[in-house]
Amino acid sequence: MNDELQIKVQAFLDGELPEAEAREIGSLLARDADAAAMRAELKHTRAALVGFERRILVPETREFYFSKIQREIEREEASASAPARPQHSIFSFWRRALAVTGGVAALAVALLVVTNFGPRGAALEVALGSGEAFTYRNYESGATLVWLSYPAENGLAENQPAATLQ
């Protein structure tokens, strides 16, 4: 008996064959001992399974089992109703990074200028030591120039008194 026929015997047993094919397989079963034996095996297996699913009980108390379900429901509802995360966080990161980088770059340029082209008696002082502001002072002319990074990360421009810039 080939595979196709075996599977048709099974479909016959399960009542899944169209009427014409069912008649055909029915007559085969009546005259073919192998087909009949196959049908008997499939029938026994099916009969053994029906109604014999393992009886297994939830190994937790009603309260504990439901509390986990309830917590998950609440968690999912909370996440569904939560506002979307602000999109500016990535920009804040880049703004901070650029401010620091810009400050360092400006300092490097100023050092270069002072070293190579600056007038005698000129000095560079890092006023705040954080790369956010530095001061160029010319003692001969009494001039002082202060650079501030922008945007000011620590509120320097807003918080420092105007006299500092003198």
């Binding site: 699913e53 297994i56 009980l57 939830v58 190994p59 089992y65 439901f66």
Partner: peptide, 29 residues
Amino acid sequence: LVFRHRDKIYARAYTMMHSEDAALDLSQE
């Protein structure tokens, strides 16, 4: 409703997965 049907649901999940831990998690899911 959960209390009434939880054992049947757990048992079916167990039969499908053949693992008590998986059955517990998936029945709750």
